[in-house]
């Protein structure tokens, strides 16, 4: 029977899953993904979460809990940096340790470090270490690695064509959560284009964000996300900021937001943050500051936590869309 490696459906799962899955499968290792986030899954994890964790870490705890007992290994790589010059959030770096200290019935944890801050070409090294855990030959590891890179580039290029991440990701998933996105046309004609920016684990976890993409689409919006913006455009924008934004995802969120704001292609921008997220509190202000210079673009900032009420979210989204539609109608008349 094939060895089973468990990957939590949380944090950077939404970005790196096609890469990890291809790598493991090519080595003949089975990948098990935790269930989609539910009230129960979140609640089960909350019992083990240390104080001062952000919402996203709390959710990730639930996913780890869900995998315990179902897998031979837990895959919780220590993601320090995935590109030159930037860091992943320190809570991610400490995540394997948080998990170890919280649970005592864990399967072996694979917590190989990834630090590509100085040399992005060093990605093969940690992959080798992972492969060696399973006593695989260098040749087969290298082949699996190459294949994983290919799949990842397929994944990323499909995202950049303007497809929504959950739709694209579903072709790599065994049991993708039901897709709740259907590109609806605006009722009042003239599709509204709304940028929805934030960390991918907030944007694409339908439970955590109370299905915000579907809600926006039902209100007649076409949703645009940071993944649809090319890395080059993001870099061009972030280079203009005097102070370096050194969180990988934060840099992407700010860069993509600035690009979309300046391109004149959006009617509104929604920043979706999670409660307890340090970087989000900065990003929110950076984006708000920029958007103030573009009065024709509406801005809404939302903060999610595990108690988020649907009514509050719906009222804000409805008012936000109404605001844009009424303004457009006024300009037309």
């Amino acid at each position: 029977m094939a060895i089973k490696v468990g990957i939590p459906r949380a944090l950077l799962y939404y970005r790196l899953y096609p890469f990890w899955k291809t790598f493991f499968n090519s080595l003949g290792i089975e990948v098990v993904v935790s269930d989609k986030t539910t009230k129960k899954l979140l609640k089960e994890g909350l019992k083990y979460v240390p104080d001062e964790a952000c919402l996203s870490i709390k959710v990730a705890f639930g996913h780890v809990k869900d995998l315990i007992g179902k897998v031979d290994y837990l895959f919780l790589p220590r993601l320090v940096s995935l590109e030159r010059g930037t860091y992943i959030c320190p809570k991610f770096i400490g995540f394997p340790d948080m998990i170890r200290s919280a649970f005592d019935n864990l399967p072996p944890v694979i917590d190989t470090s990834f630090n590509l801050r100085r040399r992005p070409s060093n990605l093969f090294l940690p992959m080798c270490r992972i492969g060696r855990i399973f006593k695989k030959s260098f040749l087969s590891i290298h082949q699996a690695y190459k294949k994983a890179l290919e799949e990842e580039s397929k994944y990323l290029s499909s995202l950049r064509k303007g497809n929504l991440l959950p739709e694209v990701l579903s072709s790599w998933e065994e049991n993708p959560p039901p897709l709740l996105n259907t590109h609806l046309k605006s009722k009042s004609g003239g599709e509204l284009r709304i940028a929805l920016v934030g960390h991918p684990y907030n944007l694409y976890d339908f439970f955590v964000n109370l299905n915000i993409i579907k809600k926006l689409e039902n209100l007649g919006a076409r949703v645009i996300t940071p993944e649809m913006v090319s890395p080059l455009a993001i870099k061009k924008e972030t280079d203009k900021i005097p102070q370096e934004v050194y969180w990988s995802l934060g840099r992407e969120i700010v860069g993509a937001s600035f690009y979309l704001i300046e391109s004149g292609s959006i009617d509104g921008l929604v920043h979706l943050g999670s409660f307890g997220c340090g970087p989000d509190s900065f990003l929110r202000e950076l984006i708000a500051d920029k958007i103030r210079k573009y009065p024709e673009i509406a801005y809404l900032s939302l903060i999610l936590d595990e108690h988020s009420g649907e009514a509050g979210l719906v009222t804000r989204l409805e008012a936000f869309i109404d605001l844009i539609e009424r303004r457009k109608a006024k300009v037309r008349s």
Binding site: G312, T315, R326, K330
Partner: peptide, 13 residues
């Protein structure tokens, strides 16, 4: 409100 249209809003959290 500016020129009769809503441009921004906030609610207590």
């Amino acid at each position: 409100v500016r020129d009769g249209v809503v441009v921004d809003f906030a609610m207590n959290t």
